[in-house]
């Protein structure tokens, strides 16, 4: 399915992800985090049917379990004793706190999985070109060189194997030496060749005047509206957060989980912020239905 959110200006996407990550690590409250995770899963589902997330499953699960266990293991603070292992107190506070952190971290990682689908290297490059043009060129060159270097390494290893030199045969010491000789050959060879790359840049006028950029991404009305929407919501949430709402105090005494009015206000804004891409997809789907 076509991805409507991906068609927004990169700045919008970038702002959304930066904001979402900040929210996930700032708004430590079980209800907030739980709902956020649901939304992020939906987001991933819409973007790539969870296939990206599936690749991270092992990492996500271990992180989750580790974080839940780790906190109660080291932390005996809290009033509500759940049980004791030997002399070690396992408290409700510790478990809740560990759980919140676990949710927050895997939420962030899941968000990055979606980020990797939406923010293609081109978009990031485009953003960099706007604020750091010289660095953007460096990044572009590096991105172009990485696959080249990989292919060259592969070639080096084939050619060297034909000479009887290989990293998979022989003693450990010999293999390390050979591997490093491969990298060294890659270095000398590539630096030798790259002079021509620099000449070709110069020949095409690099550094003569301020670079412009072939605009792929126009800032359209929809982008303006999106930015306004996101900025307003984010400011609201941060305002609430600064006064202690949308945040569960666990230590020294755990608050009740109940939400005050302002908490609910923050939660609503929070969910509206995170669901922004979902709204976009849903709107697109709706319009598509209408036109058919």
């Amino acid at each position: 399915m076509e991805n409507r959110f991906a068609r927004f200006h990169p700045l919008v996407s970038f702002f959304f992800y930066a904001g979402s990550v900040s929210l996930l690590i700032l708004m430590l409250h079980p209800i907030f985090l739980g709902l956020a995770l649901v939304i992020i899963l939906l987001l991933n589902f819409f973007h790539d049917r969870l296939s990206g997330l599936w690749r991270w499953k092992f990492f996500l699960i271990t992180t989750f379990i580790l974080m839940i266990i780790l906190n109660p293991l080291f932390n005996e603070r809290g009033r509500h004793l759940l049980f004791e292992v030997g002399t070690h107190r396992v408290t409700l506070e510790a478990v809740v706190f560990g759980g919140m952190n676990a949710l927050s971290i895997i939420g962030v990682i899941a968000l990055f999985v979606s980020y990797n689908v939406i923010m293609t290297p081109n978009k990031l490059l485009f953003l960099f070109a706007k604020i750091l043009p010289q660095f953007a060129v460096l990044l572009m060159l590096t991105l172009r060189f990485i696959p080249l270097m990989r292919r060259r390494l592969e070639e080096i290893s084939v050619v060297q194997r034909s000479k009887g030199i290989s990293v998979s045969h022989g003693k450990w010491k010999r293999r390390v030496r050979t591997g490093m000789l491969y990298v060294q050959t890659l270095l000398t060879y590539s630096l030798e060749e790259a002079i021509q790359t620099a000449d070709s840049m110069k020949a095409r006028g690099y550094g003569m005047s301020t670079r412009s950029s072939y605009e792929y991404f126009k800032f359209r009305r929809a982008d303006v509206l999106a930015i306004i929407y996101l900025v307003i919501l984010l400011s609201l949430i941060i305002y609430c957060r600064a006064f202690g709402y949308g945040f569960l105090t666990v230590y020294p005494v755990m608050e009740a989980w109940q939400l005050t009015h302002l908490d609910i206000g923050a939660l609503t804004s929070y969910l509206m912020f995170l669901s922004f891409p979902l709204f976009v997809e849903a709107g697109g789907l709706f319009r598509w239905r209408l036109s058919n």
Partner: peptide, 8 residues
């Protein structure tokens, strides 16, 4: 190969 500076 050497003249290319961009990924695409």
């Amino acid at each position: 190969e050497n003249q290319l500076v961009a990924d695409d």
